[in-house]
């Protein structure tokens, strides 16, 4: 009987997600290898950008898909991560083990403060509160005169790991980012298997049931909020390395909006979607942008076409928590 039980509780979709996720990661590695062999440095840096954006998108995707929380301020933890890398590198601390943990912890701590305030509300009020906090950090970053103020500042040195310059070239940075994507995929799958994951997913569907079961709904949502912020900060550290530059523009609300666009475009909650949508937006910018400066017109038309033509299943599913504010 036990075998049957186990079969019943295991979610087959999880296994499939893991497989398709690794297929996509494999494809990214293959593309990177091809770019290297073909000697296309531009393509290499593009793949790096796609991988880093995918990490950021996945963290938001987790928040929207697993916790049903639409944050319009996800640029904030990303920017915080980037500034942590900038400041630590300037002080000579380039080791990724320190940079990544510092970025994760700082962003998580900040989310621990802003989260409970935003979580008093739902729907559009939650969206606006997360935006408000992100705007505050945007202006804080702009006022950091000794770190370049509005203009930002170049990264003193790319990050290292245990003394090795593992991000020295764009190819190495891309490879590291893709590997990190794989780690996040594994962690996410593991989380879905835990008690936490089971409760969190149930919560997006039926908050009342979960509360009646003895779970404090807002505690779980806060954990998700904090974890998502930490992972976003990790992508910020990589972003700083990729661009060799950090500026308040990373915290601009446009970035948060773009990230939501990527997440929704790719289909919330899945790695392949996040990678594909990141690739779509970045490639649009690069290739269409190469021919015309009005590439956003093309992106806008594509987005509207996709939204209008797509069926309603996604909407019905994710509309659950977004039915207006709660007092």
């Amino acid at each position: 009987m036990n075998d049957m039980n186990r079969a019943a509780v295991v979610n087959p979709a999880l296994k499939q997600d893991l497989l398709t996720g690794f297929a996509v990661i494999g494809a990214l590695f293959a593309a990177l290898a091809t770019a290297q062999i073909a000697g296309a440095p531009y393509l290499t840096s593009l793949i790096g950008r796609i991988a880093i954006t995918s990490i950021a998108a996945l963290s938001l995707s987790f928040l929207i898909g697993q916790a049903g929380l639409v944050s319009f301020g996800h640029a904030a933890p990303i920017g915080i991560g980037a500034y942590v890398a900038l400041m630590l590198a300037a002080g000579g601390t380039t080791d990724l083990s320190i940079q990544l943990s510092a970025a994760f912890i700082l962003a998580a701590l900040i989310a621990l403060i802003t989260g409970p305030i935003a979580l008093k509300t739902r729907g559009v009020t939650f969206i606006m509160l997360t935006l408000a906090f992100a705007q505050m950090f945007f202006y804080v970053a702009s006022s950091l005169v000794s770190w370049g103020g509005d203009d930002g500042m170049a990264l003193a040195q790319r990050s290292t790991l245990f003394g090795y310059q593992i991000l020295r070239t764009d190819a190495m940075l891309a490879a590291f980012s893709i590997a990190l994507l794989a780690v996040i995929l594994l962690a996410n799958t593991w989380m879905a298997h835990t008690r936490f994951g089971l409760v969190l997913k149930a919560m997006t569907e039926n908050e009342r049931r979960v509360a009646a079961n003895g779970f404090e709904v807002n505690h779980f949502l806060l954990y998700a909020f904090v974890i998502a912020a930490g992972v976003a900060a990790v992508s910020g550290v990589l972003l700083a390395n990729q661009a060799n530059y950090v500026s308040p523009a990373y915290l601009n609300w446009h970035r948060s909006g773009e990230l939501i666009v990527i997440v929704v475009l790719g289909g919330v909650g899945r790695l392949p979607g996040a990678v594909l949508a990141s690739a779509l937006v970045i490639l649009f910018e690069e290739f269409l942008g190469h021919y015309t400066e009005y590439w956003k017109l093309g992106l806008g038309l594509t987005i509207v076409a996709i939204v209008l033509l797509r069926g309603r299943d996604l909407g019905a599913f994710f509309g659950v928590r977004n039915q207006g504010a709660r007092p």
């Binding site: 186990r6 979610n11 008690r195 089971l198 409760v199 149930a202 079961n213």
Partner: peptide, 21 residues
């Protein structure tokens, strides 16, 4: 889901649920 709602402690949340016989 209902049973784990009765469990105490903080760290239990990170134990597996789906494969716990």
């Amino acid at each position: 889901l209902a049973i784990i709602g009765t469990e105490d402690g903080v760290w239990w949340r990170w134990r597996p649920a789906l494969s716990d016989t």
